[in-house]
């Protein structure tokens, strides 16, 4: 068993175990912090696959951005002082059946398919350079569209989340 294999099993164990904790934990705070380890594990798997740039981007954006946003959401929508941190589940039995079916079908397909693996690993020293080149040549249009989407999402999120200053007085007047 090589070092690569050991590292793979380590990261895979972290990823799957913490993802299971996210899903099955009763406490929403435990779920949020288990998600942190899932993101770390997936970033480790990316690094093992030679995608160092994506691994770092995963850490920066998911752990530094999305997880913090989710934690803000948890804090702002949960009554921290009461015992309302626990959240229930719905339709556990059909969901369990579908979970087993999807996991079994996907795993079966992945195992029995004879994948045509091509030789040649990406040169880890130049992935960032290559990705930068591809952003500005082959992928230029998606790159520009993504920047517009990000701008629109930013403005839209700010518009949706802020307190509506104009509608409040009318509500109070109606009351």
């Amino acid at each position: 068993m090589s070092l690569f294999d050991i590292a793979f099993y380590f990261f895979a164990l972290i990823t799957v175990a913490s993802a299971a904790l996210v899903v099955f934990s009763r406490n929403i705070i435990y779920s949020a912090f288990a998600l942190l380890f899932t993101f770390f594990g997936v970033a480790g798997l990316y690094a093992l696959l030679g995608a160092d740039f994506v691994a770092v981007a995963q850490l920066l954006i998911y752990v530094g951005g999305i997880l913090v946003l989710l934690l803000f959401g948890v804090m702002l929508t949960t009554k921290l002082v009461s015992v309302d941190m626990k959240t229930g589940t719905l339709q556990a039995l059909p969901a369990t059946l579908l979970f087993a079916a999807v996991a079994g079908a996907l795993s079966g397909v992945y195992i029995i398919t004879d994948w045509n693996v091509l030789a040649g690993a990406p040169d880890a020293a130049t992935t960032a350079v290559t990705i930068g080149d591809m952003f500005l040549t082959t992928w230029l249009l998606p790159f520009e569209i993504a920047s517009v989407v990000l701008l629109v999402a930013l403005v839209g999120a700010a518009m949706i989340a802020r307190r509506d200053a104009r509608s409040k007085p009318t509500q109070q007047a109606a009351l």
Partner: peptide
């Protein structure tokens, strides 16, 4: 599959 289960069951 875990993500799917999460989306389907959690309130």
């Amino acid at each position: 599959s875990l993500g799917l289960y999460c989306v389907m069951t959690r309130r």
